[in-house]
Simulated assay, not measured.
Amino acid sequence: MRNVFFILLLLSLSGCDTQQQEANANEAATAASPPLTFGTSYDQLLAKFTEINFDTLAVSPPDLENGDSPFMGIGLDSAMTALFPKEISGVDSSFAISKFALDADNTALIARVPGDYWSNRIVLLVFNHTRRQLHFKSDIAYNWGDAGDWETINSWLIRTKDNTLYQLTDDTSGSIEDGVEPEKAESIVSSEYYLLHIKPEITDTLSKDSTSLLQTYGHLLRARQ
């Protein structure tokens, strides 16, 4: 009886050892497996964007009438715009402008996409190379006007020596007084400034204190006025 007990014990230990070996082998195989890829479509999209390097980059809505803006870009077909994030996906008349490294695994893209009336909305996107994902970050330039109301967004992308990226934005809007003859009407204009910290994962709003930002970045903001 004792011999039978020892035989069963040895078989049990052997089975546990085999299961552990299989688990270790599966874990090693999983670790050795290459990451999933989703074709070369994203690579083709990124190739349309021109590599740039800067400390401070001023971004303004393009002058579509004259077509002499540095933010006109290269046209993208529908297969490429289908890769855009949901905030701007499935749109025609989109253009690749420029790209720059945000860090070792993320590339920032500047693109021109349709706004309310024309393709004059400039946006910032970030592509993560490991996850093969493209994310919307922020609007960096835009303008529109309708029946006496208007809005213009200008931004500055600022990179520090440690490659931290900030976005300083001037959002200025105006309107014409209602019920007043056009030649006598006055334009009511207001400006709001805000500062963003652009990170691969999130976008942090650092300040919406327009007075403080004007004091700190007046050399940039006043240049637009």
Rank of each mutant, 00 (worst) to 15 (best):
K199V: 00
K161C: 08
A104M: 12
N106F: 02
S93M: 11
I176G: 00
Y193V: 07
T205S: 10
T30L: 15
S210H: 01
L165N: 03
K48N: 12
H135F: 12
G145N: 10
T205Q: 13
E27V: 03
Y117R: 09
A101P: 14
T50C: 05
I122N: 09
A29L: 09
A185N: 03
L83R: 03
L10N: 10
K199G: 02
T50I: 15
Q19V: 06
V91P: 07
Y193G: 04
W118P: 13
D77R: 05
W156E: 07
K86D: 14
A28Y: 02
P34W: 06
G179R: 08
H135G: 14
P34Q: 11
D204V: 01
R224S: 10
L64V: 04
D77E: 07
L221K: 11
G39R: 00
R132I: 06
T40Y: 04
L157F: 04
S155Q: 00
D103P: 05
T203R: 11
S191K: 15
S93E: 12
G15E: 09
D146F: 14
L157Q: 04
E201F: 04
S187Y: 14
E51H: 14
N66C: 10
D178N: 15
R132Y: 01
A31S: 12
N143K: 15
N106L: 02
Y142I: 00
L46Q: 03
T216M: 11
R112N: 06
A185H: 09
T18C: 14
N154S: 13
T56S: 14
W118S: 15
E65S: 09
D178G: 15
D116E: 14
F71Q: 08
V180D: 00
S93F: 07
S33T: 15
A29F: 03
G75V: 11
D162Q: 11
N106V: 00
Y194T: 06
E65P: 03
L8P: 10
N106R: 04
A82C: 08
A28T: 05
D146Q: 12
I202V: 10
K86C: 08
A82P: 05
A25V: 03
A31P: 01
W156S: 05
P200L: 01
H219V: 08
M1W: 09
T56H: 14
Y193W: 13
S138M: 02
T81L: 01
L46G: 05
S210W: 00
W150K: 00
L196F: 07
Y42D: 06
A96V: 05
K48R: 08
K99E: 04
G148I: 09
R121F: 07
R132S: 14
T18F: 08
F49W: 03
